[in-house]
Structure formats: structure tokens, C-alpha cells
Design a protein around this nucleic acid. Structure first.
Lengths: 213, 213
DNA sequence: ACCTTTGCTTGACACTGTCTAAAAGTGTGA
DNA sequence: TCACACTTTTAGACAGTGTCAAGCAAAGGT
């Protein structure tokens, strides 16, 4: 009996009916995802972590994709929280808020790379799932509202404003993705910067996405 | 006997020794990848496509990751070719060349989404493989030379020029990645544009990455 | 007390990648 | 022509995977 990888609140004793196995499985799945990545994620391994039988997860989430979809949905909440955290530290200027939001975007990706990949590039989530779609939409609306605050035009109605949205989104997303795949290591000076310098560096790049007419 | 998914040049008759099973397997693997994606890629399915036994691929590539690594390496050649194609159509102005290169970046991603994912975000390729590293490096150097042509400074020696590299790379990569995950569908006007309009739209965004001091 | 519903376990199945031994083919030297 | 070394490919076994169907254990309502 290895006692390490269990997170059952009952101490691993596998009581027949858990208080909230749904959440317990989600937590176990998140650890599994973080440790193994999307591509080596195993449902049976998640069940082991939660000290339940290999068939238990299916009852709550249907199948693997269902579990991953739920995980991605919860991930969006944390994603938005990471951006909020940065925004609250920023000056009240709309441009500073946008840059901060982008830094939060990158924060989240580097802190939870596997979850980020699951949310944005995996094909194992059910994108037609309403909860997931709503969560993803909330993240998108956060961005559009930043642009609207800066440009004074609703991106949903103004093509130029929407171009700014896509530009800023593309930059933040691209930097985050390249970052967690280790490709920004080519810019050696990045590693030598302290946190504040790096933030300033990325902020500058993110703000290139908006046009100053 | 289903006769459809075989690409053996001998007509599926599975002669014992193939002329060039190495290449045959790569071609089969590329089809498999395109049809199923990285996450559902199956080695045994590749072997079936090539009409050989399930153990044959291992002899040529060691294991699945070896095959995927070889596939990614070949992918970079096509990736660069896609950019070259765009550059040759562009005006000779350095900025136009850069924008064209970015469009080629997006061309490749939309034409070969699964291969693009394998190259840039999968963890199943061996990034320490020299051939793969060289191929990836060649793609990166193409970008830096574009920036150098524009700014007149070597990004490897100048931090401001490298910032432009990362900015442009981030934009092109981010747009490409968001594109193939279907997220740019929110900008409905994009779908209504013809090819030339879309190119101009993306070019404008890509060029926001470089600073005009 | 019984019955129904839900939660979870158990066993089976087809499929996966990898390992091994053996077979099939190729080439060389006598 | 034969014998030998060598590479290429096959075929079988193995542990691991996700999913499904059947059954058991607990909870709640009547």
C-alpha cells in the first residue's frame, strides 16, 4: 500500500459513499493532469488517486472527455481569477488594465501549463458543452470590455475595435503558448530579468495590439 | 479485406521487403495524424495503413515518440516552404516580406492543424533530437532575419530587436493557434471576407509587432 | 418492512505501445 | 552452390488503457 498519492479526506480508507466524490475526482484529476499532461492523462490513475474503483469516474462524468471538459470549465474560473488578480494590482488606466489582464493570461499559463493546454488546444473537451462554452465566453468578454474601455467602441459592433481584440488576444495567447513550450528560452535575456522587468517587457508587447489612431 | 486505407506502392500486396518502408511509414503516419489528431494517433493504425505488421514501425523509429518526432521534423520543412511561398508573392519591401511570412505561418497551421499542433504544442516529440532542433531553429532564424532586415539590428545582439521578434512571433503563433481551435469564429466578419481582405487584415495585425521608432 | 433510485464495484472486452523470439529475406565469401 | 552473418519483418505475449454491462451496497420514500 503506497500511501502517498491519495487525497481522500477519509484518509484513503475508501468509505463506500463519499461525501462529495464529484469534487474529489475533479481535484484528483487536476493533479493527474498537472503531473502527466493532457496526452498521458489516465482515467484509471485518477480513480486510484481518489481511492475509488476504476469505473467510478464514468458514473459522474460519463467518460474521460466528460471529466476533462469539467476540468477545463473549472479551469476558466481560475483563468479569469488570475487575470483579476493582476488587474487589481494595476493602475486604473484602461490600458494598464488591459496589459495587466494579459500578464494574468501568461501567469495562468505558466502556473498551470497542462490545464491551459487542455482549455485551449486539446480536442478532448466537448466544446458544445454549455457550461464550458459559457466559461470560455466570460473570458472573451473580459477582453472585449477592456478594448471597449480603451477605444470607446464595442468590438461586437465595430470591426476596428475587434481587430484590436484579436491582436491583443493573439499576442497574449501566442506568448503564453510559446512560453510554456519552452520556446522563449531563445531570448536569453528574459531569464536574466527580474519579475518587474519581465512584466514591463511583456506589457509593452501586449499593448502593441491596440491601435493609437 | 477493406481495400481503402492502404497506401502501399505495391498495391497493398505487402511484399515482404519494401523499397522504402521508412518513407512509407512516414506518409502513412502523416495521414493518420491528419485524420485522427495527435491525441488519438495510433501506431498500430499507422502500421495497418502501410500494410505491415504492428511491430514494424518500432524498428525504424524506436517507438511512437520517435515516429512523431520524425514527422514533426519533416513538418518544419513544409512549414518553412509555406512561408517561402507567401514571401515570393510579396513585394520586396522588408515589412511586406515579414507580413507574408506570417501569413504563411497561418496558412500552414490551417492547412495542417494536427501537424502544427504536433510541432508546437505536443509533448510527445523529442525536443532534444538534433534534426528536430535544427529544423525548428531554421524556422526561428527565418523570422529573426526578417526583423533584422527591417530594423537593421541583429536580434541576437539587440534586445529591442528581439522584442520585435517575440512580438511578431507571438502574434502569428497566437492567431494561428486560435484560428485552428475555432476561436476566431467569434469575429463573424472574418468569415465574410474574401481571401485578399483576410490577408490584409492579418497583415495589419502582424505588423503591429514591430516598433516604428 | 419493502421497493426504487442512486452510487459504486467488479469483471469483461477491445484496443493501445512495447518487448521478445523467431522467421524471412539479402548479401558475402568460399 | 552452399554456409554464414546480417538486417528487416512478423507474430505472440504482456501490462496498461477506456468503456460497457451486471451486480452489490447504501439511502430515502412509502
Amino acid at each position: 500500500m503506497s500511501a502517498s498519492p491519495q487525497i481522500s479526506p477519509t484518509g484513503g480508507k475508501s468509505s463506500y459513499l463519499h461525501a462529495d466524490l464529484h469534487r474529489l475526482l475533479l481535484d484528483a484529476a487536476e493533479i493527474e493532469l498537472a503531473q502527466k499532461g493532457v496526452e498521458k492523462f489516465s482515467l484509471r490513475s485518477v480513480a486510484k488517486r481518489a481511492s475509488v474503483s476504476h469505473g467510478a469516474p464514468a458514473h459522474h462524468f460519463g467518460n474521460v472527455d466528460g471529466l476533462l471538459t469539467a476540468l477545463a470549465t473549472r479551469g476558466y474560473a481560475r483563468f479569469i481569477a488570475a487575470q483579476d488578480r493582476r488587474e487589481n494590482l494595476a493602475e486604473s488606466c484602461p490600458r494598464a488594465k488591459l496589459a495587466a489582464s494579459g500578464l494574468g493570461y501568461i501567469d495562468f499559463a505558466t502556473a498551470h501549463p497542462a490545464l491551459f493546454r487542455l482549455m485551449f488546444t486539446s480536442e478532448r473537451t466537448d466544446k458544445s458543452n454549455p457550461s464550458l462554452a459559457d466559461a470560455a465566453n466570460a473570458a472573451f468578454e473580459k477582453l472585449t470590455s477592456h478594448i471597449e474601455a480603451i477605444q470607446g467602441r464595442d468590438p461586437h459592433r465595430d470591426q476596428l475595435a475587434m481587430a484590436d481584440v484579436l491582436a491583443c488576444w493573439g499576442i497574449a495567447h501566442g506568448l503564453a503558448d510559446l512560453m510554456i513550450s519552452g520556446r522563449l528560452g531563445r531570448a536569453t535575456f528574459l531569464a536574466q530579468m527580474d519579475a518587474a522587468e519581465r512584466d514591463a517587457f511583456f506589457s509593452d508587447i501586449i499593448l502593441r495590439g491596440i491601435t493609437t489612431s
